[in-house]
């Protein structure tokens, strides 16, 4: 299915993105741990998923709904870890535009997101800020 990507001009503060869900499969987790060189014993054979992995997958899923033209800059990132995600979980992510501001040549956009796990447990909250060209 082709997702219609929204341009910056089409986004409004308060706008909700369609919820997305994704599965934390073992192959993706292993690939993530390898790519980041994560060697902490917390992740050895426990199936615990690093919070930044959850955030990265949530963000990339959400950005399927937003057109990011060349030159878009990821300015800042907030992350709050509330509970641990584990391999095999299916997570749901909800997100909304929390700020849109044009200031001179800056075209700023903040997206806030929440990632929930089984039984609606909130796992991660975050806010990503971008500057559009």
């Amino acid at each position: 299915m082709t997702v219609q990507k929204l341009e910056y001009r089409q986004l409004e503060v308060g706008q909700q993105f369609p919820a997305v869900s994704f599965n934390l499969d073992s192959d993706s987790l292993a690939a993530y741990l390898k790519s980041t060189g994560e060697l902490d014993s917390l992740y050895e054979g426990t199936g615990i998923v690093p919070p930044t992995a959850v955030a990265a997958w949530a963000l990339i899923s959400l950005l399927e709904h937003v057109a990011l033209p060349e030159g878009t800059i990821h300015l800042s990132q907030e992350l709050q870890c509330l509970s641990m995600a584990t391999e095999g979980d299916t997570l749901n992510c909800r997100a909304r535009v929390s700020r849109k501001q044009e200031r001179g040549r800056l075209r700023l956009l903040d997206i806030e997101f929440d990632v929930v796990g089984k039984e609606g447990t909130l796992l991660i909250s975050g806010k990503s800020s971008f500057n559009f060209p």
Binding site: S35, T36, T52, H74, S76, Q77, E78, L79, L82
Partner: peptide, 29 residues
């Protein structure tokens, strides 16, 4: 987000599991 993962790794290495359940990060690239 890869470099941010390194920051999270540093916090995990220092504080262990408590980082995964109560950590907050507010960073600028």
């Amino acid at each position: 987000m890869l470099i941010l993962a390194y920051v999270s790794q540093m916090m995990t290495a220092n504080f262990g599991q408590v980082w995964l359940t109560s950590g907050k990060l507010n960073t600028r690239f």
